[in-house]
Amino acid sequence: MKLSEIARILESEFLTGENKKDVDFHYCRGCDLMSDVLAAFADGSVFLTGLVTIQAVRTASISGAGAIVFVRNKKPSADIVALAREEDIPLLVTPLTMFVSCGRLYEGGLTGVNGNR
């Protein structure tokens, strides 16, 4: 699923990284526990979280996540957006909850990072 489609399904806006809207994603992870994110590689995944911290961006960068979506309309500060831009990781914000966001992406065909559905 292209990132532009993920953005549409989640009714979300790009804060940075719109130039990657045509990148394909196959996996999704919804998680607020950074060590859980680090416990498994996540190349080609979109990372949904309600934890709006600079460490969420660093965790995404280190785990290989290709995009971050902040759920529940949580807006990151300017330094978080700047770091995502520097790390070349698209950042989106959705008004939807984690549950509904995951549900919509599951329905759209994405799998967990281990490939399970």
């Binding site: 607020d32 416990a39 460490q55 969420a56």
Partner: peptide
């Protein structure tokens, strides 16, 4: 509350 401290750091390093 910042998403760390769940007792997974050292096990993740070992793994």
């Amino acid at each position: 509350e910042m998403g760390f401290g769940a007792g997974m750091g050292l096990p993740n390093i070992k793994k």
